[in-house]
Amino acid sequence: MKLSYSQKRRWSGYVFLLPWLVGAAFFLVYPFVFSIALSVSDLENNNFTKMFFVGLANYKKAFVTDVEFVPKFLTVVTDTLINTPMIVIFAFLTAIMVSRDIKGKGIFRALFFLPVLLGTGFVMQQLQGQSIQSGSLEVARGILLPEKLQAYLGYEITGYITAFFNRITIVMWGSGVQIVIMLAGIQSIAPALYEVARVDGATEWEMFWKITLPMSAPILLLCIVYTIAASFTGSSQVVDYIISLAFGTAVPQFAYSAAMGWIYFLFVLAVILLVFLMMRRPVNRVAQR
């Protein structure tokens, strides 16, 4: 049988997607369908062959009966809502600074990636654990706020300030990947745009608002989505809770755990869709250029 050129191209597409399609069947579609089914059922003795349909009972349990889920969920949501804009803005500004032609920028760029090497690992969790235990990170204490000043300001205000610096430090450690991605985005903006603006007498300040910021819209979108996804999917109170109910107890609650996982996922999906909608216009403007 002889295939025409376009037919050949079509079949080649499937050839290239084949490994992924196999993977998608086993690691995406199957788990999705299974966990939806699981989340609306009840298991008898955790035997997966004996599933009973119970409707939305598990979902209701998460919101109505379970006293732990909602507070944990809200903590993660507020943390993400506060941290995401901070990470994105901080990474953007840092990327602009190291994208300038300064001495030692290579060293700075390498340094900013260091926490990523430890980022998902255990040391960072230990360090972040410090802040939960003692109320502040050592790096945020003392160095940024001298003891004399602390004594002068009084306990309450110092508490707020250290909490603020705490968050900033955690934000900084969480922004290594974003800095690298933003750097790539900023450096790909055509230099001609800046030259034209300079000839027309624009200041650095104006060029930032009129060129750098709008031209970075696509990369900002990528970073925001990545940050939200990373913050929700990384280790958090909710995630640890879900896992502990499924794997950490003598009597695993698989069905309930799946239901909470779905509540969590639907929320993440909603937030990300919202971001896409909000960023649609500025991103399209760059794409149409």
């Binding site: 079509r10 499937y14 995406l28 788990p31 995630v239 799946a258 993440v268």
Partner: peptide, 30 residues
């Protein structure tokens, strides 16, 4: 494959790809 070829179902597959980026491991671990 996603970048160079056009074939039936591509946009659906692409949607699934996006989904695979944002779905938390925890949702599907069981």
């Amino acid at each position: 494959g996603f970048a160079r070829f056009s074939f039936r179902g591509k946009s659906l597959f692409f949607l699934l790809l996006l989904l695979s980026i944002i779905v938390p491991v925890q949702t599907i671990i069981v």
